[in-house]
Design a protein around this nucleic acid. Sequence first.
DNA 1: TTGTAAGCGTTATCAC
DNA 2: GTGATAACGCTTACAA
Lengths: 320, 320
Amino acid sequence: MKDVAKEAGVALGTVSKVFNGLPVGDSYRQRVEAAAEKLGYRVNNYARGLRASKTFTVALIMPNIGHPFFGTLADYIYQELDRRGYKMLVFLAGYDPEAERKSIQMVRQNKVDGVIALSYPPDLEVDDSIPFVSIDRYFSAGIPCIASDNYGGGQLAAQKLAELGCKRLLFFRIGSVMPGEPDKRGAGFEAGCQMLGVQYDVLRLNDEDGMDPFFRYLEEHMADGKLEYDGIFCCTDHVAYRVMLKLRSMGVRVPEDVQIIGFDGIHVFDGDGFFVSTIVQPVKPLAEAAVSVLLSEDRSKLPALMCLPVSYAKGGTTKD
Amino acid sequence: MKDVAKEAGVALGTVSKVFNGLPVGDSYRQRVEAAAEKLGYRVNNYARGLRASKTFTVALIMPNIGHPFFGTLADYIYQELDRRGYKMLVFLAGYDPEAERKSIQMVRQNKVDGVIALSYPPDLEVDDSIPFVSIDRYFSAGIPCIASDNYGGGQLAAQKLAELGCKRLLFFRIGSVMPGEPDKRGAGFEAGCQMLGVQYDVLRLNDEDGMDPFFRYLEEHMADGKLEYDGIFCCTDHVAYRVMLKLRSMGVRVPEDVQIIGFDGIHVFDGDGFFVSTIVQPVKPLAEAAVSVLLSEDRSKLPALMCLPVSYAKGGTTKD
DNA sequence: TTGTAAGCGTTATCAC
DNA sequence: GTGATAACGCTTACAA
């Protein structure tokens, strides 16, 4: 920068102003720009971050980025941050609380301007000096949580299955013991069934158990090649997909005999079709909301919990 | 840091040394650590980066991160960087050369310690002052390129299809006009066919055309409900998947009448099964190699091009 | 070993 | 508007 100033024959401060869009005489500006171009000068963001303690960087903490739901969400979040001139520093913590904590530490050191986290560890300690937004997990009133309307989605699934003629429903839930907004899918489903007067059963499992107990359950509830249930709601598309595969391998026709609805709205490839019939999470709005809340000017009155509307989409596992 | 020094009753330099793992008297170290803990002190990476011009940050430039192949690759790259104590700054440029250039600019300003780029713009100008590794596209001898053995994969596909009894092969290629290692898939396939003396045709399309010309071609080459070809190699799993869907909708049985092999090795979900029979890219080794080459101590003799072995995996679109 | 002091590249505050 | 100067928080010779 000093060199640029010398080359342009102006003072240091002037160069700084040019690069910050502050008012500067036009002739000066041009000379500075020419000199910078000639010398291939770029402002050093580290020096800038040090001095201005504003880094235009946001940290994204997620379990991973290979799963299509997370990947897509991360992609949209990036777009939104980029649009506003922010960079994205990624931390992938798996489902390991230890890694989570490490990420938080890193975030602290790196003086990012904000954190968007999709994580479940209950004891996540957040430095409230730095803007923080959570996706899918409610921590406390001080930390805005952005989530899909999981409860409403559960209800919608029950309603859809009932509409499609199902009389005997089943809910499959698998997931970590960690609490989060997604848990409400089951609650919404149960409420929906009760409201509609439809009979239903619930099977809850933990991550460690894998899918086998589900499969065993399905086998146990077969009689004369016919499943006891004619509609199944699964907590995720992944589970729904595997249940579909299992049923078909057992000779059960999907969706003719049993209809299945999943949750997430994952695409096979980009935009062409769903794995299963599903309750679609509004991934893009989710991303936009998270960024917008994180970067909002007035952080005094932020929403504690923001639920975005979901929708139903037909994949291959329901009649309509 | 000054506060920590005061609290611990030591000099500034001592505190610095403690946080850099440099030799320091044990009693001092403990006092410093206690003081830091008490004051909740974290070293400021921006100040550190400014002074030491080492940021322990690597930039990853990719088209996107929502596509399962890119997402998975990014995930593995993250793991590898994390293992070595590096952070990952992500830049998603779609397939827009303009965005690419912007990313490169950003990278420059941000004084990252290295760049891993999966991008195709032919005029990408790289600042050779900063370690740069390319994935899937060869730029020049100065820039190491890590890629799958695309040529060998093409050959393998031809060989597999021939082994499985195919007599009349077809190669479908869709993609941007931008050159890159993946182009070699077709070349390898053709070479394989020639070597084996199998008859084959090739259909090449550009991205903008979409899949329709393929579908039309397939329809035109049907006679009496039978396709003229009994084996198809597609440049990606995505294309293969869509071709499979199309053929099935046309009443052609896959894999009984026509066998299809794709390229990439994308999973339906995490680890359970492939979309189609496929030539699997070694995603994890690719990530490891990229990071390892990027961060290698001796940058004087780096490989110009490094091709990693691919393998064949049966999905649902071949007989074996 | 420890303490001191000089910068790293910017930005912000002033007088001019 | 412009230009000198002091910070920002840290690393690293170098002297003690």
